[in-house]
Design a protein around this nucleic acid. Sequence first.
DNA 1: TTGTACGCGTTATCAA
DNA 2: TTGATAACGCGTACAA
Lengths: 361, 361
Amino acid sequence: MSTRRATILDVARQAGVSPSTASVVFSGKTPVSDATRRRVLDAAESLGYTGPDPRAASLRRGRSGIVGVVFEEHLGAAFQDPVKILVMDGLTDGVAALGAGLLLLRDDGPAGVEPTVTSAPLDAAVLIGCSGRMRESLEILRGRGIPVVVIEGDAGEGIPQIRLDNREAQRHAASHLRSLGHARVAIVSLPKDRARIPGLIVDESGIEVDVTRDRLRGARDIFPDAPAYAAVKSSIDEGLAAGRVLLADPADRPTAIIAQSDLLAAGVLRAAEEAGLRVPEDLSVTGFDGIVVDGLAPYVLTTLVQPATDKGRAAGQAVAAMLEGRDAASILFTCEFREGNTTGPAPDQPAKSRKVAAFGA
Amino acid sequence: MSTRRATILDVARQAGVSPSTASVVFSGKTPVSDATRRRVLDAAESLGYTGPDPRAASLRRGRSGIVGVVFEEHLGAAFQDPVKILVMDGLTDGVAALGAGLLLLRDDGPAGVEPTVTSAPLDAAVLIGCSGRMRESLEILRGRGIPVVVIEGDAGEGIPQIRLDNREAQRHAASHLRSLGHARVAIVSLPKDRARIPGLIVDESGIEVDVTRDRLRGARDIFPDAPAYAAVKSSIDEGLAAGRVLLADPADRPTAIIAQSDLLAAGVLRAAEEAGLRVPEDLSVTGFDGIVVDGLAPYVLTTLVQPATDKGRAAGQAVAAMLEGRDAASILFTCEFREGNTTGPAPDQPAKSRKVAAFGA
DNA sequence: TTGTACGCGTTATCAA
DNA sequence: TTGATAACGCGTACAA
C-alpha cells in the first residue's frame, strides 16, 4: 500500500476536487472556498501528503529557491574569517526576502566527484572574492545563464560587484597616523596570493589579491616607503608573528604599525606586549574591518569599520533584483574610521629616517 | 531566436540522435561511441547547451544532491563557534562522497517568508543540536520522509545520532585536577538554555542544553559541590567575565577552574592574569574541545580534544548510508585528554572547605 | 470558484 | 551501442 508517496493528484482525487484546485490550496495563489480547503487539507492529512514536491515544483516554476555561495577556499578556512561570517549573515538576510536558502559551494572541488557549481540547481550565485580559479566558476555559471554577484572581487563586464573603498579607507588611517607625527611606519598585510608565503613584500606587482593590493596602496599614498610584511593569513597568531619580526630590532623600530585586518592588529598588540612596548605610548597600531575581536579588551582598536553585514545583504538584494529581471547595480561601500585607544602621538625619538629607508628596501 | 534555452531535445535533434542517447552522453551512465559523443557535444556547443537542467534531472532521478544543515541559531552565531565550523568542515567531506552540497537552513525562519525546511529540495538533513524548536523541524522533515541525522542532540527513536562522551571526558579532566590535589574547584559552563542568562547555576534541573548538562555531570561526579557559573555563550570575553566573578574574592578563590569550552577557558586565563594569578602555580584551568585558540600562546590548554571534524564526517557518511537504503548506526565519539601547561599541583593553602560549600550554595 | 489540458526537461527501462 | 516510450509531480493558462 504505502509503496509510493502520495502526490497532489491522489489528494485531489480523495478530496473530490481537481488537481489544480488542490495545488492552489497549497500555493495560495488563488482564493479557495473554506469548505474546499478543508476537504483538501483533510485528504492530505489522511494520505500523509505534506505538500508539493519541491523538485517538481521547481521544474515547473523554473526556480529552485537556492542561491549558491562560492568560496575559493576550504570552508573551514572561510569561516575562520570573521568578516566572511558577517557577510554570510547579511546574505542570509538578503536572500530571505526571496525565500531562498544558501548552498555552500567550493570552487575547487576535489576533482573526484561532482563539481557542484556545474550541476547544482541554482537560481543565482554569489562569489566571495574573485581571483584565479574563481574565474572558471564564473564562466561556468554565466554559461548556465545563472545570475552572479561578486563580493570583493573584480569580475569584469556586466557583473554587479559589491566592494569597499579599501584604498581610501586605509589612506585615511594612514593620514591619521601621520597627523599624530608618525613617520616610521610599518605595514602588516593580508596574504598576497594563494601561495601565502609570509615575509616582506618586495615585488608589489606580484600581489594577486585585490583587497591586499588596494589597502596597501592606501597606506602607500601616505607612507610610500613603509616596509610591508605579508602574513600567512588573517589571524591573531600570524599578526603576532609578523609583529615580532617588525619589532625585533630595538634600534630600528617603527612607531606605528598599520595592520590590514583587526585580527592581525590584535596579534601586533600581543607582539608589542611581548616586546615590552606600551600601546599607544610607544607604538600605535591600526586595524581594518571593525569586527569584535574576542578577548581584545581593554584595547579598542583604531580601525576602519567596514559594513560587512551590509555587504552581504546588498549582495542578496542584488540577486533578488536580477531574479526579478531588474538589473542590479554595483555598489561601493564606505568604511568608517573609528579611533580607539591603540593610536596616539608618535613618541619623541630621533627620526632615524635613513634606517627606515633601508628597512623599506 | 534565442527566446528559449536549448534543451537536450534540441541537442539530440541537431546531432541526429535520440534524446536518450544525448542524455547518456552527458551522464556517462552507458558507453557511447566516440563518433556519437562528438556529434552530440558539437551540437551542444553550437546551441550553447551547457548540460542537463538540474531541476529536471532531480525530478526524474528523485535526488537533488542537496543535504540540508539545520541550525538552531542565527547563522552568524553558529559560525562564531569553532567547533561547529570544524563539524561543517567534516560534513563537507562526508557528503562530498555523495556529490552533494550543503544547504544552510535555519530552524526559526523570520516567520514572514518561506520556512525552508518545509520546502527545500533536500535529499537528507543534518540537525546540529536538537533542543526545543528543533523538534518541530525534525517532525517536518520526518513527515516529508527525509532522512535525518542529529549531531549532539537527542532526537529519539530511530534517528542516528552523532554524539560525544561528554560526561566521561569531563570527569576525566576533573579527576586529573583532583589527583593534583585540587579540592576547591569552580566550573564555568556553557549556556543552560536559550535564554542564556549568565550567573551561578542554582537549579540544575533547568538545564536544557544536553552538552552543558552532560559536561556538568562529569565534573560533578568528582566535585559534587563545585559552584558552576553559566556563561552567556562560548567566547573568550564571556569566559573572562565569568572568571572575574569566580576569582573576585581573594579570600575564597578556587584553585582550579573547569571551563566547558576552550574559549571560556581562554577567558578564564585572562581573568587570572588580571587578578595577578599565575597559571598553573596559583590557578589551574581546563578547557574542553581541543580547538586552536587564536592568540592563546604561550599557554597550551589542558583540555579534552574532541574529534569535531570526524563528527561531521561521520554525519555525512551516515547520510550517505541512509540514502543508499542501508541504515546508519548512531555513533558515540570519545574525547582525548590532553595535558597542557595550564594545570598543575594545587597550591599549598589551607583548604577552606566550609567556605567552598557555602560558595557552592 | 473550479476543472481541463498541457508542458516543464530529463532519464530509466527495455527492446532493437 | 542506440532509440522509442513513458513517467517524474506539479503549476497555470484558459475555459466554464
